[in-house]
Amino acid sequence: MVGSIGSATSLSGRVLVQWVSRTGRELVRNLRQRHEIKALTELDDRMLKDIGLTRGDVQGALSESLLHNPSMVLVRSAERHSRAERAVPPARPVRPVVPLVTRSVRASV
C-alpha cells in the first residue's frame, strides 16, 4: 500500500513538472512573438494595411497578457478585416470591360 501512495505522489509530481515545463515554454514563445510584433510598430499605416492590420490591432496584441499568444490576436484581426472588406459591395455598379451587344448580329447583316 505504501508503494501505491508513492507512485500516486510521483505521478502528480510528474504532472506538475510537465505543466510547469509547458507553461514555461509557452511563456518564452509568447515573449519571442511579442518581440517580433513590436517590430510591426515601426511600419507606417499603409504598410500595416497591406498586410491586413491596423495600428490598433498591433497595440491590442501587445496589450494581451503574457500568457496569451499575441500572434493569434493579429491573425484573428486580419481575418476579421478581410471578411469586412469582402462584405462591402462596390460603391457604384461596375461597368463591363467588353461592351454589351444589345441587338442581334444577324439583324444588321
Rank of each mutant, 00 (worst) to 15 (best):
K38L: 05
A8G: 08
R92S: 15
E42S: 11
T102L: 11
R83I: 03
V101D: 14
L40N: 02
A84K: 11
A84C: 02
P89C: 04
V105P: 12
T102R: 09
L66A: 09
A39F: 06
L11R: 05
V94T: 10
L27V: 08
G56D: 13
I37D: 00
S77H: 05
V73P: 04
L40Y: 10
R86M: 12
V88N: 15
S7I: 03
L43M: 08
R34N: 09
P90C: 01
V2Q: 13
L100H: 06
V75L: 10
R76H: 14
A87N: 09
R103T: 13
R86F: 10
S10N: 03
R95H: 09
L74F: 03
A78E: 08
S65N: 02
S104W: 13
L100W: 07
S104E: 07
D44M: 02
E36L: 09
M1N: 01
S4R: 11
E42F: 06
V101F: 12
V2E: 12
I5C: 00
P89L: 06
I37W: 01
S82M: 08
V2G: 12
A61Q: 00
G24D: 13
A87I: 07
E26W: 08
V58F: 00
R14I: 13
G6C: 01
P99T: 09
R80Q: 10
T54M: 03
N69E: 11
L43S: 03
R83V: 00
G56E: 06
A8K: 01
S108E: 15
T102A: 14
P89K: 03
N30C: 07
E64I: 04
P93E: 04
L74T: 00
R106C: 04
S10F: 05
A84V: 03
S63V: 04
G24I: 07
S7A: 10
R25S: 14
S104K: 06
A107N: 09
V15K: 11
R25N: 15
S77R: 11
I51A: 05
K49E: 07
A8S: 06
M47N: 10
R55F: 01
R14L: 12
N69W: 03
P89R: 01
W19D: 09
L66K: 08
R32F: 10
S77N: 08
L67Y: 06
